[in-house]
Amino acid sequence: MTVLVRDLRPADQADAEGFVRVRRLALPYILFTPESVRHTAVHSHPGARYRPLVAEEDGEVIGTAQVYLAHDSPEPGQGCLNVYVRPDRTGRGAGRLLVQAAEEYLASLGATKLFAWALDEPANRAFAERRGYRQGRSGFFLRLDLAHGTLPPPLEVPAGVELRTAADFAGDPRPLFDLDAETVLDEPGDIQAEFTDYDAWLAQTWNHPLLDRELTTVACADGRPVAFTVAHTDGDTRYVTAMTGTARAHRGRGLAKLAKIHGLHRARAAGVTEAFTGNDTGNAPMIAINEWLGYEKCATEVRYVRELG
């Protein structure tokens, strides 16, 4: 059996479904749908030079890679490759071939530092370290059982604060972009990002097919968004928090906690049964909020880094 690596064909339904199948089996804590796979392939910022790859064996997609430049970072030359292989198809060389193709592509674009996520399991760690990657930061995946778990009651909305949804900003989402751009500056991680391109944000974030505007919850003060929790849903029963943040001038008031608890209650009422979120392991305040909400840690992911000569 021969494993071949090639570019994903976004318009090919079978390719998109194969990509989703691999990710659901290898990384069930993040949502992917054929529509979201196509959207990312088509609407990623040109500066990212985004290139999705698949590893194919006998016509079946058994591995995937998302390969791109960190174009929104103030530090140039940073590339990312996130490689996942179906757990029942490992040991066939798919991961090795995907990494090789991704590294060659990023090097050709001038990348000098490569970042790759890997689940914190012995085989994954050994795979990365054999290829010259060193451990960087880590993050937790957390899961909340909305069907059978216990969710604290909604918090009282303080005076001067109004809870709204992203759908309320459909006519002018610019205030949400401004809040997103401010909060991402303080998000812990190996790669710092800066959002400066509103049109790109509209294409990639606001019009993302997983974005649930009705369940994305926004705390407003003086009519302006000051805290939010962004909801991604698969159109069925699964929910992922894509981002939670508070404007700097309004921190320390529990507004992120307020938005999250109200958003989760609304998600449960809408039929969501399973919610996931992720946190940098050093983000103690947000981890504490999520554990108060009833989330439980279900996996750890490690960021690996390799310097290119």
Rank of each mutant, 00 (worst) to 15 (best):
G18T: 04
T273V: 08
H265S: 03
A107F: 00
M243C: 09
A102S: 14
A116R: 07
G132K: 06
L114G: 06
V184C: 11
G235L: 02
V85C: 08
D72P: 10
H208T: 10
L31E: 13
T229M: 14
V20P: 03
D180I: 00
A193E: 05
R134Y: 05
T2Y: 06
F177C: 00
D120E: 12
M243H: 15
W292M: 02
R21Q: 13
T112K: 14
A11S: 11
D58E: 15
M243F: 15
E104C: 03
P173H: 11
H232E: 14
V161A: 03
L179P: 09
A231E: 06
D145Y: 11
I191R: 07
K113L: 12
P175I: 07
N290Y: 10
D190G: 09
V157K: 14
R130Y: 07
A14H: 10
P225A: 11
G278K: 12
G77P: 04
Y304D: 10
Y239P: 10
L202T: 01
S138C: 08
R213T: 13
L98K: 12
R238L: 08
E57I: 00
G282V: 01
W117D: 14
L106M: 04
T183V: 15
L210S: 11
E307K: 09
P52Y: 13
F177W: 12
A94P: 03
P34S: 00
M286G: 03
H232T: 09
V240M: 09
A203K: 04
L163Y: 10
P10V: 10
D58R: 06
Y105V: 04
F32E: 13
V272G: 01
G245E: 12
A166W: 15
G93A: 05
D190Q: 11
Y133Q: 06
Y198A: 00
V5E: 01
R51H: 09
A256K: 09
Q204V: 08
G132W: 03
P225Y: 03
A116K: 03
A102H: 01
P153I: 10
D145V: 07
L119H: 10
E104S: 10
F169K: 00
P209L: 04
F228K: 15
S44L: 04
R303I: 08
T40G: 09
G139W: 08
H45Y: 00
D236V: 00
V240T: 13
S108L: 02
R125L: 08
G47N: 05
S108Q: 02
G278C: 12
R251W: 07
T64C: 12
D172Y: 09
A126C: 00
T246G: 03
P74I: 12
K260F: 10
H250L: 08
R251Y: 09
D168R: 06
W292R: 07
E296K: 13
R303C: 14
T205W: 15
Y239A: 05
C220W: 05
E274G: 04
L179S: 09
G160S: 15
T183K: 05
A259F: 08
P152R: 05
V230W: 15
A123C: 01
D178M: 13
